[in-house]
Amino acid sequence: MTIKEKEKQNYQERFNQVKPKPPIFKNIIWAFIIGGLICTLGQYIQDYFVSIGFSKKDAGGPTSAVLIFLGAFFTGLGVYDELGRLAGAGSIVPITGFANSIVAPAMEWKREGYVFGVGAKMFTIAGPVIVYGTVTAMLVGFIRWLMG
């Protein structure tokens, strides 16, 4: 059935008018609180590594590793998606959310085997992050190298 562009446009506008808006204010507050708390936890962990002799810069790696462990573990327990329903970006944007995005598909596709399931699906969401992050970093590096 062919529908004219004009009619499609009208319907889209009509839909936009009745489309329920997400509770933005509530979402922002929760994203701020949960996101802030996860970063504060990260700060405590980093301070601990500094206190046992890591330099401030070198403490970054182990801090990420601990947070990634926590994100992965609570995803395994089935808690992280419940947190995500409330916190939204507050639990997606911190590195714990990166861990969640790796464990969730890996666990989900376990039935499809350890190679094509767990191994292949693990990076369905985190893969693009690593690809575009690394390519951008190399590009930035190349430009800075050209500039001397």
């Binding site: 395994g76 089935g78 861990a99 790796i102 464990v103 989900e108 693990m122």
Partner: peptide
């Protein structure tokens, strides 16, 4: 440089991701 600097995080993500996927079910 890029991957050397983030090696700890990435290895942790791969290792913990794999272990949790083996241990738990959705």
């Amino acid at each position: 440089g890029a991957l050397r600097a983030t090696a700890t995080g990435l290895s942790a993500a791969i290792a913990f991701g794999f272990i949790m996927a083996v241990l738990f079910n959705p």
